[in-house]
């Protein structure tokens, strides 16, 4: 069995989105291309039969993280900053390193016995009920840890983003005391 046409189309869409996100010069365009890459990945998950992961990817990445990145770009005035040089020695070094990493990974995939099973198994079923039962029984401890971590991350993000107000109110006092 070979790869199907939908998989190829979705993979091309995802990779094109990724390349555009990393090479375009305007940051807002990069964020839009990144959204395309995330949506393509969600479609790839759906194509592979992982409905829950695909929909979670769509909600979290396309819905939340893309919006967060656009907000960060606009809040840091990165939208009008296009002074990045298109070619630099550091850029060449990074591209060479990335190419080397891809060559090693592709070599590993091409030579691994694990990546070339004799037959393709039938599509496994992963209903919401099965996932819910697994989350509530076998994976209940990781679920609780994730809940705690999300709470901590939310509080941490709010504190980090709020720091300026306190610093602004104490900054004049600090300046006058240092002089």
């Amino acid at each position: 069995m070979t790869m199907t046409l939908p998989f190829l189309i979705l993979a091309l869409l995802t990779l094109a989105g990724g390349v555009a996100a990393m090479t375009l010069r305007r940051l807002v365009h990069c964020a839009l291309a990144l959204t395309v890459a995330f949506a393509g990945l969600a479609a790839l998950y759906l194509n592979l039969g992982a409905e829950f992961a695909g929909l979670a990817q769509l909600l979290v990445y396309v819905g939340a993280i893309a919006i967060l990145i656009v907000f960060a770009i606009l809040l840091t005035r990165g939208g009008d900053d296009v002074s990045e040089p298109s070619f630099s020695p550091a850029g060449l070094g990074g591209a060479v390193i990335a190419l080397a990493v891809f060559a090693v990974l592709a070599w590993a995939v091409a030579t691994s016995r694990l990546a070339h099973p004799a037959s393709t198994p039938p599509a496994p079923s992963a209903s919401m009920q099965q996932i819910g039962i697994a989350l509530m029984q076998r994976y209940v401890l990781p679920l609780e840890v994730i809940a705690l971590m999300l709470t901590a991350a939310m509080i941490g993000a709010v504190i980090l983003a709020l720091r300026e107000k306190r610093a602004a109110s104490t900054a004049p006092a600090l300046e006058s005391s240092s002089r």
Binding site: M1, T2, M3, T4, F7, L8, A11, T14, L15, G18, V19, A21, M22, L27, A37, L44, L48, G78, D81, E84, S88, A90, G91, G93, G94, A95, I97, A98, L99, V101, F102, L105, A106, V109, A110, A115, H116, P117, T120
Partner: peptide, 27 residues
Amino acid sequence: MNPLAGCLLVSALLFAIGLAGALTRRS
């Protein structure tokens, strides 16, 4: 090429793209 190797290659390419971006972009 079988589907598993195709998925792994797409994933490796995406990883390389992300690595190149993280190493070369200045923003």
